Simulated assay, not measured.
Amino acid sequence: MIGIYLSGTGNTKHCVEKLVNLLDDTARCIPLETPYIINMLENENTMGLFSGDGTGCTARLLKKYGAEILGGLQIKMPDSVCDSKLLKKGIEENRQIVKNADKRIEQTAEQIKRGIYPKEGLSFIAHIKGLFGQRLWFYRKTIYYTDKLKISDSCIGCGLCSKECPMKNIKMKENRAVPGKRCTMCYRCISLCPQKAITLLGKKVQEQCRLEKYE
């Protein structure tokens, strides 16, 4: 078994690794972090943050490439938007969220072993709810964020953001990070910057959201 994921702050990586390792202790998990794959997902409007039915979006996309969809599971994980107070929770509450997610994944793994696959987010009703409840509402608000990444004067030119960006959207020029126009809002650079010099939605980093803080 092979698990694949796109994970900006570690949430999806954690969930995929846990599930496939419970199903197959010889499984391998690999990131699909290439600009081509990310662009393909972004063009299909499947980014989970504002999708509402991210499971269904991804399933429909995979079907177009010949995949057979057996099930879908939607897991609540800690918020990863670092520069907005919206949805922010305390460390203990986020730790409980991760514990609850782990429990659900363990229960799901046992069901799958018995041939029972969850169908979360795959129904027509889920598609309609996600489409009208979130994706269409947020689409016009987020479509222009590809060139809104901001890097302040506190940047020390360490190059970590440039190295870690899966879209290769940040370049180093004269010992300073310079953003491009291909941001997909994964928030990896913002959560990793040692100077908290990078923002996207807000003007200040409220909390650097990395999963390891809550495990």
Score class of each variant (00 low, 15 high):
6 L>Y: 06
10 G>V: 01
11 N>W: 05
12 T>S: 15
16 V>H: 04
18 K>L: 15
18 K>R: 14
19 L>Q: 08
20 V>K: 07
22 L>Y: 08
24 D>Q: 10
30 I>C: 04
34 T>C: 12
41 L>Q: 13
43 N>A: 09
46 T>C: 15
52 G>K: 06
53 D>V: 11
53 D>S: 14
57 C>N: 14
58 T>H: 03
63 K>R: 15
64 K>D: 15
65 Y>C: 10
66 G>M: 05
68 E>H: 08
69 I>A: 09
73 L>V: 04
73 L>M: 05
81 V>A: 13
82 C>L: 02
89 K>P: 04
93 E>W: 00
95 R>V: 07
95 R>K: 14
95 R>D: 08
96 Q>I: 03
98 V>C: 00
100 N>L: 07
104 R>A: 10
112 I>A: 05
112 I>M: 11
113 K>L: 11
115 G>Y: 01
115 G>A: 01
119 K>R: 12
127 H>T: 13
129 K>D: 00
132 F>M: 14
133 G>F: 05
135 R>H: 07
138 F>Y: 13
147 D>R: 11
153 D>H: 03
155 C>D: 13
159 G>H: 06
160 L>Q: 11
163 K>I: 12
163 K>D: 15
167 M>P: 07
167 M>I: 06
172 M>A: 06
174 E>T: 05
175 N>A: 13
176 R>T: 09
177 A>I: 05
178 V>Q: 11
180 G>P: 11
183 C>D: 11
187 Y>T: 04
189 C>Q: 08
191 S>V: 02
196 K>D: 14
196 K>G: 14
201 L>A: 07
201 L>N: 02
202 G>E: 08
207 E>I: 03
